[in-house]
Design a protein around this nucleic acid. Structure first.
Lengths: 207, 207
DNA sequence: TTGACAAGTCAACACTGTTTACTTATACCG
DNA sequence: CGGTATAAGTAAACAGTGTTGACTTGTCAA
């Protein structure tokens, strides 16, 4: 609340940056705990101790605030960097632990607003730049982006189902077993699925 | 719009069921083409030629209207009925063709509002009763529901990513090839994932 | 014909995100 | 030091949302 004394004091009246940051901090906290849709601009402003209009002044719209909050965080910290072989398992572990723990703050905010038409562009950019892009780079090959999209579908889908269903069904499995399953599923996204050598399409029992 | 002739005095001018149905029809049409969030109660009412308050009178809330619209349609018409062996491919084909065609009207409405907190209960019921339940029944075994959840995650995830991304990456593949891929992925959801199998980077596909 | 009761209407409520016109503090300049 | 341009911050309104309760009105049974 109190205005911090700014050391620089070069050309700034009433510390624009500090105010911006306060709004950003409040937004991150509230979006994280309650989701995008349930938190109003006025509440963010009140929490930050600033006027509502400043949200639109500094971020264009509420949407822009979420975009900036989202952009702050890496999607897969230290996961795409490793070797390709272990990628499915690393991703699976990330998803399961993130999922079980209630997870990465921003992931929850994302899942809370997955289908919001107002946020389509925000999610689109995030999905392409922070998820599909890096994944495709590790995956490589001509179908890299398509495979990355498949992986992203699995990851987002699990998060979504968990959020909708409370993970009642998914949590029937031990976490380790769920990791095993997901590893196989993500692995299937990355492996070649030639019509003849499909791993389980022709009969997953004997595959 | 297409409201019955009041002037003709044929039948009842004040027909509860007819009014209810008119609201339902308008809601289905508008939700389908524009999604839940973008269509307001007042527009539905106007489209149906009735008063706004009737939506809440007959359906409790806008949410109830969507719930009823959703409940009308089968999730997987003629898909879970077949043999278990071919299930992954049938599901994959359904997803791809539904996805490419712009799809089942209701599926689109669902994808448009996947994360809406207000609709959590609606989606939860739908997911359990019309998706996970039937799938689990075909799948069978002790982990049936968990596996069904995984399959549902893949299906919903693909729909979601397609909606967000415009399927730019997924559509790099020929539809048939996408079906192959998805068949493998869904197959992986159903097949046993032996704990030791992929743990230490045993390549899936030798990648 | 007359009530009764349901069907339908209307206006308001408490919100939402956003914008406009305004006030005020501050940092530079004379 | 005082004056002032300018940016930071404010208040109030706008147009919209879902929802509600009090109201009117049509229709059918007695």
């Amino acid at each position: 609340m109190e205005r911090p004394e700014d050391g620089g004091c070069a050309g700034r009246a009433r510390d624009r940056e500090a105010t911006r940051q306060r709004i950003l901090d409040s937004a991150r906290e509230l979006f994280t705990s309650e989701g995008y849709a349930k938190v109003s601009s006025r509440r963010i402003a009140a929490h930050a101790g600033v006027n509502v209009a400043l949200i639109n002044r500094y971020f264009g719209a509420k949407r822009g605030l979420l975009a900036e909050v989202i952009a702050e965080e890496a999607a897969f910290p230290g996961i795409v960097e490793g070797d390709r072989e272990g990628l499915p398992r690393r991703l699976a572990e990330h998803v399961v632990h993130r999922t079980l723990a209630g997870g990465t703050p921003l992931a929850r905010a994302l899942e809370h607003s997955a289908g919001d038409p107002d946020l389509k562009s925000v999610h689109e950019e995030r999905l392409k730049n922070a998820v599909i892009g890096p994944l495709a780079e590790v995956i490589g090959g001509p179908e890299a982006r398509a495979r990355a999209s498949l992986v992203a579908s699995v990851i987002l889908g699990v998060g979504l189902v968990r959020r909708i269903e409370g993970a009642a069904s998914l949590n029937e499995l031990e976490p380790d077993r769920l990791v095993d399953h997901l590893t196989a599923v993500i692995g299937a996204c990355l492996s070649d699925a030639a019509p003849g050598r499909v791993r389980s399409g022709g009969g997953e029992g004997g595959g």
